[in-house]
Design a protein around this nucleic acid. Structure first.
Lengths: 200, 200, 200, 200
DNA sequence: CGTTAATCGAGACGGTACGTCGCGTCTTCCC
DNA sequence: GGGAAGACGCGACGTACCGTCTCGATTAACG
């Protein structure tokens, strides 16, 4: 998707590329992903439809690259390691909450989530390029905590990870309850309690 | 949706209703939700398009009712209370895992999840009619456990609930890892560890 | 073309049919056949493109039916038989000249002529439905004249026919010289001279 | 068209020029003029599109030059003057019939005829460069015949000309009947009968 | 128990968007 | 500077579905 198909990349118009990605984000923010059309993107970007079809295989792929560009603009997630695991996790989980509540990210994310259900390739790409790098950063922090003795030795870090992230994702997707810092804190506390090494 | 709208329900053709719901499920299973069209449903069901539009406001509503019918056929999830909280939770979580892995449920569920992102009304309906009743059953079991002293007094049951359910949902939606009984068990064990009342 | 293909003719919207034929004629008169597009016809007629494609196989077919409707509105060509062959022929040939010079007929005719070169089916249809009936009327008049002794017995009427009509068509198509009544008269006179029965 | 436009003709690649004209003829023979595209010509000729646009103003102009090249290869039609007018005319008319029946000329001719209807400039060019020279040759032969007393004094040679040529053109364009030597002969005979000087 | 009005299958209709083709212009790199 | 290559903005193509709207032909409730 980032490097989709074949034509000569050297001749590609960077101007058009940016205009398309920007237009896609704007439109998804304005109208919701359901009403997003290739024609609207092309019109907004001042670009021929063919220029989109030349470089991206589907609307979802455009959206994906738009989202990647957005994430890059914002820089990666900083995962601090101050030694205080609970504080570190709460900080990053709160930041995640803020991001999920930010319409700038929320709407494209929902659009991509919707498209992913019908497009396994997109889903795999999303997981590989966006989700897993983040999870890997989390896991690294947990591993460091395990080395430091803050977490029981035998802990399956991958499960612990999903215990942290799953509930946030669940609330965001299903909108069952408001997604707040308090909730993030509560999740972190509960999970850490279950990870605590046996009292000596 | 479940209670659609206006015309004289008495005159409604039950034959057509079933044919439409069945056709929708078949088509979603065959082609994926993205390619599901009203026209295809009507053709497959041997029904005029107007008969669909008369009784349902949208494609998503048809899918929703199809899904409800499917769930009813299978009966609700029984939440046992044997007194052994861990065993009870593992049983029901494993059952959930099996359901999520069953293509019969998997594809329509994904279709509904996708539609929900663009249709807040559907999302609310789904939550209210399908998700929350299940969660309520879980919560009731946890409450009973708290009364029995298996869970610490101050526990926020809602958060505990989402700690259980969130990770499963996360794996299902994002397909990061296979969704297995072992994972369900691990989640239950971890969560219960964090809920345990302080040792006396 | 007049009866092109399949859908249920009973349900056909006469209103749309007329609007399409009228729009086609208007547009061909305004912009010339080269710039005539199905989209423009549909827009002008206030009609969906599919309604055109449902009933006609091609742009040329629409134009053909438009032209037929135009001809019907104007009524058939009256071929008088006053007994004076030269007068009768001059009258009808002058009328033909006027028609070829009338932009109302000229532009659609040229458009059809152009399309016919690439569409043998259209060409055959044009010949069979429009041209041959006219030629048959001419031929009948010549036959009557032959019976009356105004034309030599052995004359090949078909060749005579094309000797009359061919030069007019040639000037019209190739625009080599202005197409006037005088030219029509001259053609008639020359041809009749060649058809005259041997002097006794 | 024959003298296209501006750039430095000295630098022009003769190789490309021939390839383009040949490709145009081949394609028009294969696919019919309706499907002839500049891109196809460029691809077939192994030439950049710009090279075509640099030297010709339109697809029709390319076709026109292709046709001219074809005619030059074959050499002009010789109009004999043996003293026997009827024999001379029959010879040349039969040759014309053969040419019109030769697919090598037929298809490009039809293509040009079609284009001419929408492109008055092309039409004028065709008439001036191709048609009128031929007609002038015919007319010259008729004039010679009039001098020789084979044709009545007052005859309008131009009309006589079109009486000869019009019927052939009519049959070719409209395909009403097969275009044969017999038809050519019949036309010549009829026309000459009408041109005959008054019996003395 | 026949009348009658609503629902039904069918599908034509005015539209919107699709993904493709070709246009004529432009830009890049090569000879 | 001409030429091969081909990306670009654009406009039209012919198709797929949308949601609305007629059409008879059932069909179920009411008179």
């Amino acid at each position: 998707m980032a490097e989709p198909r074949s034509p000569q990349t050297s001749r590609r118009s960077e101007r058009s590329r940016r205009a398309i990605l920007d237009a896609a984000l704007e439109l998804v923010a304005e109208t919701g992903s359901g009403k997003l059309t290739i024609e609207a993107i092309a019109a907004r970007a001042g670009v021929g439809k063919q220029t989109i079809y030349r470089w991206w295989p589907s609307k979802a792929a455009v959206l994906f690259d738009s989202f990647l560009a957005l994430s890059e603009d914002a820089g990666g997630i900083a995962l601090p390691d101050t030694g205080d695991l609970e504080a570190d996790l709460k900080q990053v989980m709160r930041a995640k909450v803020d991001e999920l509540n930010d319409p700038r990210y929320d709407l494209p994310s929902r659009a991509l989530a919707a498209e992913s259900q019908n497009d396994p390739v997109l889903a795999a790409e999303l997981t590989a390029k966006v989700l897993e790098p983040q999870l890997a950063a989390y896991e690294e922090r947990l591993r460091s905590a395990r080395r430091a003795g803050d977490i029981a030795e035998g802990t399956d870090l991958r499960v612990a990870l999903e215990l942290l992230v799953g509930p946030l994702h669940h609330r965001w997707m299903l909108r069952t309850r408001p997604l707040t810092h308090a909730f993030a804190d509560a999740v972190v506390e509960m999970v850490l309690r279950s990870l605590a090494p046996p009292a000596r």
